[in-house]
Design a protein around this nucleic acid. Sequence first.
DNA 1: ATAGCTGCAAATGCTTTGCAAGGCC
DNA 2: GGCCTTGCAAAGCATTTGCAGCTAT
Lengths: 139, 139
Amino acid sequence: MIDLRSNAEATKDLRAVGLRPTRQRLALARLLFGHGNRHVTAESLYDSALDAGIKVSLATVYNTLHQFTSAGLLRQVVVDSTRCYFDTNIENHHHFYFEDTGEIADIPNDRINAVAPTDLPRDMEISRVDIVVRLRHTR
Amino acid sequence: MIDLRSNAEATKDLRAVGLRPTRQRLALARLLFGHGNRHVTAESLYDSALDAGIKVSLATVYNTLHQFTSAGLLRQVVVDSTRCYFDTNIENHHHFYFEDTGEIADIPNDRINAVAPTDLPRDMEISRVDIVVRLRHTR
DNA sequence: ATAGCTGCAAATGCTTTGCAAGGCC
DNA sequence: GGCCTTGCAAAGCATTTGCAGCTAT
């Protein structure tokens, strides 16, 4: 998470993960981390940026999302094979997926749990357990 | 699951789900359901078909996978945003995902379980719960 | 006969890349 | 100044679609 209390803090935080604090990165960080947890696609963040009057290209949004993910500031969520979602919540948690709208929401951590398999394939360890609860409207 | 004991059975089963028993569909059904549970992508099934000497186009493989899925013979598995996997096991179960190879394996049903959230968003019901245990090699 | 299916090639949609111009240190 | 970053347009890749010809009933 980038500290947004001041521009100086955000700048320092970006540097800390090895990224130059460019105008675009600072602006996208503000959009991503300035309003609670968000679930974005490159396209949706790009639209938000345009709405906010930020001059940035779609390619840079893609780059930035991946750089932030590599830096551990974001997490990728796989719920739909046609789109790539990024989550600003990097804590261990799971997701609701609204099949009708394609939206994602966090499941509060105390509301779901998985009992992991006790025996894994040889020489393998768990990298992560992802749970997606797919929801649809009641009839 | 298509009954493969005889061509006549398979033909009948395809008709039962409203699909004409064409040469391509019968051949793909045999590949899919003839060797235990399989996890395929369109491309991998297409390759299997070519290896088996089946004359079929990639577009038809895509069509067939989707038709079989709509008919309830297959299930889609979302583990990777770049590829679309289909599973011949349509029972309620979950998956291992091998991050190194991109392969998928079923998790025996008694080995994992999710405690579903007790309160869902208003007017929503669970369509499905998907659990993916992502594995990597131990160092 | 005719409605449905197949195969090809073209189109699509999301994502990545190459490279010249611009910005940060 | 030098290296990193950006932006655009082009390329890439998996998947879908349009349509003429073929096939099952």
